[in-house]
Simulated assay, not measured.
Amino acid sequence: MRTVGVEEELLLVDAETGRPRSVAARTLEYAAEAAVPAESGGGGGGVPGDSAETAQATATAGVPGGSLEHELQQQQIETDTIPHTDMVALGDGVRAWRDHAITAARRAGARVIASGTSPLPVGAAIVGKPRYLKMVEHFGLTTTEQLTGACHVHVSVESDDEGVGVLDRIRGWLPALLALSANSPFWQGEDTKYASFRSQAMVRWPTAGPTEAFGTAEGYHALIASMIASGAILDEGMVYFDARLSHHYPTVEIRVADVCPDAADTVLVAALCRGLVDTAAAAWRAGEEPLPLSVSMLRLMSWQAGRFGIEGELIDPRTLKPRAAREVVADLVDHVRAALRENGDEALVDAQVEQVFARGNGAMRQRAVLEKTGQLSDVVADLATATAGLDG
Rank of each mutant, 00 (worst) to 15 (best):
M1V: 14
T17N: 04
R26S: 13
V36L: 12
G41T: 07
T54D: 14
A59N: 07
V63K: 10
G66W: 11
E78D: 12
I82F: 01
M87V: 13
G91S: 04
D92W: 06
D92H: 15
W97R: 14
I113G: 08
S115K: 00
I126L: 13
R131L: 11
L133K: 03
H138V: 02
G140L: 07
L141Y: 09
T142I: 13
T143P: 03
G149M: 10
G149P: 09
A150C: 10
H152P: 05
V155D: 06
L178A: 05
N183M: 02
N183R: 03
K193M: 11
A195D: 14
S199R: 06
M202A: 11
R204T: 14
A213N: 12
T216Y: 03
S226P: 01
M227R: 11
D235R: 04
Y240W: 14
A243N: 08
R244G: 05
Y249T: 15
V252W: 02
V267H: 01
A270R: 06
G275K: 01
A280F: 04
E288G: 01
P292H: 05
P292E: 12
V295E: 15
W303Y: 15
G306T: 05
G312I: 10
E313Q: 15
P322T: 11
R323T: 01
V333D: 00
R341Y: 01
G344C: 10
A347W: 00
M364I: 14
R367I: 02
V379M: 11
D391I: 03
